[in-house]
């Protein structure tokens, strides 16, 4: 009996430490007063509403969304064929290719941002937006390859051969037989990539210009000016967004199977 209660106490404290802070910012954002405080000075929704009126937040939200969606789509367009090739074929330099594709996980993001700024944006004149797009795509690519690969390992290659013998071309065999059986993995990769890209900070630190800032960077910049509860409200909204997406993915896809 005591063991059971000890276990509950340990888990309870751990979860309070991990999740408690979110509850606090959700509530802090509900403040009716002017400054960030907990417990808040009265309750109102005004900060939650104000978030939508701050123009820079709106612009950076759109940029972050676009980066996350298109960056992940391109990462999948590159990553699905790569995962397929690495699983199906005995290709030359397979280990080298795997190492290259996994590199963005190991290299600290801030260095990537700096490198792209110095050697792509400044000398060549690449726009900051395009550099951001490249960086976010590269960042998501390893996850796309890994998640799609793991959903492909149980897929036997003779299924494709069967499809070809029934009249399919290689390409249509991929779309008719392979893709339907890995679509859960592809969707999981998309969600994981989206969340990773959307929440990404270090890579984007140096990649910001006039009017071009990802949302997290914009929030950091806003916090340097003022500690009003709007950032708390925005943080809470973003947390709901991420949790909502992951919750739906888990419910309809069994997301955690793939990650």
């Amino acid at each position: 009996m005591t063991e059971k209660w000890t276990s509950r106490l340990i888990l309870g404290l751990t979860l309070i430490f991990l999740i408690g802070p979110f509850l606090i910012i959700i509530i802090a954002g509900l403040s009716a007063g002017q400054s960030l405080a907990f417990p808040p000075d009265g309750i109102s929704l005004k900060w939650y509403l104000k978030v939508f009126e701050i123009e820079s937040f709106r612009d950076s939200f759109i940029l972050s969304m676009a980066l996350a969606i298109f960056g992940t789509l391109i990462a999948l367009a590159l990553g699905v064929p790569a995962a397929y090739a690495l699983n199906r074929y005995e290709i030359p330099y397979a280990e080298t290719i795997k190492t290259i594709v996994a590199a963005p996980i190991i290299v600290p993001g801030i260095i990537v941002g700096l490198a792209l700024l110095r050697y792509l944006v400044l000398p060549i004149g690449l726009t900051v937006t395009l550099a951001l797009f490249f960086a976010h795509t590269a960042l998501v690519l390893p996850y796309a390859v890994r998640v799609v690969s793991s959903s492909m390992t149980n897929l036997r290659s003779d299924m494709e051969e069967a499809a070809v013998l029934l009249g399919c071309t290689r390409l249509s065999a991929f779309f008719k037989v392979v893709l339907p059986n890995i679509k859960g993995g592809v969707l999981a990769a998309f969600i994981l990539g989206f969340v990773t890209s959307f929440n990404q900070v270090p890579v984007s630190l140096f990649l910001s210009g006039p009017g071009v800032r990802t949302l997290p960077i914009d929030m950091l910049a806003y916090m340097e000016i003022t500690y009003d509860p709007s950032v708390a409200a925005l943080s809470a909204l973003l947390a709901f967004l991420s949790v909502g997406i992951v919750f739906l993915a888990e419910k309809f896809l069994g997301f955690s199977r793939y990650v």
Binding site: R156, D158, M159, E161, A162, A163, L165, V177, N181
Partner: peptide
């Protein structure tokens, strides 16, 4: 036609 050892059904 080829009937695979593993059947290779979809």
């Amino acid at each position: 036609g080829l009937m695979f050892q593993s059947y290779a059904l979809f």
